[in-house]
Amino acid sequence: MLDRSPRSASPLRSGGPSDLELMEGIQREDPEALSQLYDRYNGILKALILRVIHNEAEADDLLQEIFMEIWNQAKNFSAQRGKPLGWMVTLARRRAIDGLRKKQAYARAEERLQQETEQQPDAWVHNSTEEEILHSDRRVLIRRVIGVLPPAQQQAIELAFFRGMSQREIAAKTNTPLGTVKTRLELGLKKIYDGLKELRDEL
């Protein structure tokens, strides 16, 4: 069974098993490990899914499917190839984008996104309220790194990561030459990557 003694801390919580220990627990088919991993990350993964598909009920269903996939695929996770959160985010993003494409919901999502943007300019390109920021120092630090990017670079990365768009699709959507899109993505990602490296000690 899962070792619940306070050892190495999770990136999001002090004390308790680390993410890696929870993944190892899931690999040993310990439901308690999945339960704890769910409690720790359901909010983050749901936010990611919601950001892609813009539908609350579908996001909940997909969240359940993704955690079931985490349970089923845990044996394929290797700590040598990255951290558990990166693996889960990659899995969740891929499933969310697949779901969006399967349902051919681009048009609907586009419409909802437009409405949401008009009603509440959240997110990344236009940052969040002071109250939201106070909820998470980590989020503030990451948003600060992202926030220094020129808006065109932020937009290109957002369309690629959260909408699953190819460089060509981004070029068409933003009416920008393909080479410019590529440059924006490369420069923006490098700046964020470098910024995160500097923050690593703080996070």
Binding site: I44, L48, G86, A123, I142
Partner: peptide, 14 residues
């Protein structure tokens, strides 16, 4: 993969 993590962590949890 720290990039993917960061993009997810930049969102307000739902």
């Amino acid at each position: 993969y720290s990039l993917s993590e960061a993009f997810a962590l930049s969102l307000k949890p739902a």
